[in-house]
Design a protein around this nucleic acid. Structure first.
Lengths: 143, 143
DNA sequence: ATAAGTGCAAACTATTTGCAGGAAA
DNA sequence: TTTCCTGCAAATAGTTTGCACTTAT
């Protein structure tokens, strides 16, 4: 009998955290579960913290910040290139782009078909392209 | 003889400010001169403020912030979609895109040839495309 | 046992705001 | 002479940090 004594052992979230080279602490695993439970998300530290509290996950805001950055460095998250004071993280790190609704500062994934970019210039020497972010800014249609 | 009694009268900068529907105050005209004197620039409020001081333009930081936002609403500037705490403004509001140097958080214009985007999805109803921002993120080439 | 992670509160940075005085129309 | 603008200082928002305590290995 090898019953797991720790509640979060063996979860997908734990594996994810472990693979990132991070110790699977209660807080990290719980945050990973929240972040990656359902599909693509755009979320800020404050929002994730609130969500954690609602889910009865006790974790400090400072730890949420630390964890988000650690996850980002580990390639589990990506920082969204948006204006404004808050930093938003994207749980989808694969190639995809976004609509940005001006005024509301709201982000929506562009999922229909592959958006292609042509005539991309060569990067300066010694540099290579990490990835390409396309933000399609939208405003209310004037009529 | 119609000598201009006010130093900044008749300048391009004054005309620009006036056309934006803003009163051509000493501060606004001076900041417009600094901003649009030479080509495309990526600049933050703090940086513009310092530059103003160096040029012996007396203007408060609060006014620099206000002015940058007023210029942005008037379409004279554009906010750059970059991560990080500071807001950067682009003095070039025409269609062009950027390299973003990771680590250094540095922006470089992409000026070579027209970068084209194909397969752009239709915007949701009631919305139209304001413009498209492309950020080509660069990292040091591993070797 | 040891190294790494966490929580708290304080510090910090960028930005905004309220209001009294000053300048443009 | 009225309305808008500016400067200052205080307020705010988001994020980071120092350090004593806890947890994973």
């Amino acid at each position: 009998m090898v019953a797991q004594s720790i509640a979060y052992s063996g979860s997908t979230a734990e594996a994810r955290v472990r693979q990132a080279g991070l110790r699977p602490t209660r807080q990290r695993v719980a945050l990973a579960e929240l972040l990656f439970a359902d599909g693509d998300r755009h979320i800020s530290a404050e929002e994730l913290h609130e969500e954690a509290q609602r889910a009865d996950v006790r974790v400090s805001l400072a730890t949420v910040y630390n964890t988000l950055h650690q996850f980002t460095e580990a390639g589990m998250l990506r920082i969204l290139p948006v204006e404004g004071s808050k930093t938003y993280f994207d749980t989808n790190t694969s190639d995809h782009h976004h609509f940005f609704v001006e005024g509301e500062n709201r982000l929506v994934d562009i999922d229909e078909g592959p958006v292609a970019v042509s005539n991309l210039p060569c990067p300066p020497d010694g540099m290579e392209i990490s990835h390409v972010d396309i933000m399609v800014r939208l405003r209310p249609k004037k009529r």
